[in-house]
């Protein structure tokens, strides 16, 4: 069994922690060896954040480097482009089309590259660009963006829908299960 590499990237505070927790839970239940690596601390304060999820028969390194990621799940458009060099040949990007301006853009020292996903598509990269924020709001909360994106990722896996939902139920607090289940369904069937 080949090791599969997933990167979850975004802006500090966007909720990538729950996404990696969900994936970890699901994959351990599937009997895989799993490593999940993220960096806490300073990078959480609105900075660029990245979580590595690797699974397979035996996983050694906790990190993913250039040209290795089978999937990049990005919570924000610019972040998808920033980490694109980590994508393996034939890899898939799943990206929330939300734009969050970084400080150099906020203070007018740089432009937000709004057309950047097109540049990647032009180079043959498979990009699934979704308005996960609107879908999450439709489900009931902007905070469910993470689950919508996980649903988009789930479509690429052979693990059945019900198992994903079961993992969600084990990962989130009971009062948020209905909301997250809705978000997962919306993302999965969109």
């Amino acid at each position: 069994m080949k090791t599969t590499n997933i990167m979850i990237v975004g802006v500090g505070g966007q909720g990538s922690l729950l996404a990696s927790k969900l994936l970890g839970r699901l994959l351990v239940d599937e009997g895989c060896d799993v490593k999940v690596s993220e960096v806490h601390g300073m990078s959480q304060r609105g900075g660029s954040v990245v979580t590595y999820v690797r699974f397979g028969e035996k996983v050694y390194s906790p990190v993913i480097t250039e040209g290795e990621a089978d999937y990049i799940v990005s919570f924000e458009k610019l972040e998808a482009a920033r980490w694109a060099s980590c994508l393996a040949k034939g890899g898939q990007i799943i990206v929330n089309t939300q734009e969050i301006a970084p400080m150099p853009v906020i203070i007018g020292n740089a432009e937000y590259p709004s057309e950047i996903l097109g540049e990647l598509t032009a180079k043959g990269v498979r990009v699934d660009a979704v308005d996960a924020l609107s879908m999450a709001m439709e489900a009931g909360s902007a905070k469910a963006v993470n689950i919508v994106l996980m649903a988009r990722l789930a479509k690429h896996f052979e693990i059945p829908f019900e198992k994903w939902v079961a993992a969600i139920e084990k990962t989130v607090a009971p009062k948020f299960i209905a909301l997250n289940r809705r978000a997962f369904e919306i993302g999965y069937h969109a």
């Binding site: 250039e66 980590c86 970084p102």
Partner: peptide, 20 residues
């Protein structure tokens, strides 16, 4: 050997941490 990579042409502005 290095693994092959793709990158966009446009620069990606840095996103340093900042006060909330």
């Amino acid at each position: 050997p290095k693994k092959p990579t793709v990158s966009p042409e446009s620069a990606t502005p840095a996103r340093p941490p900042m006060m909330c």
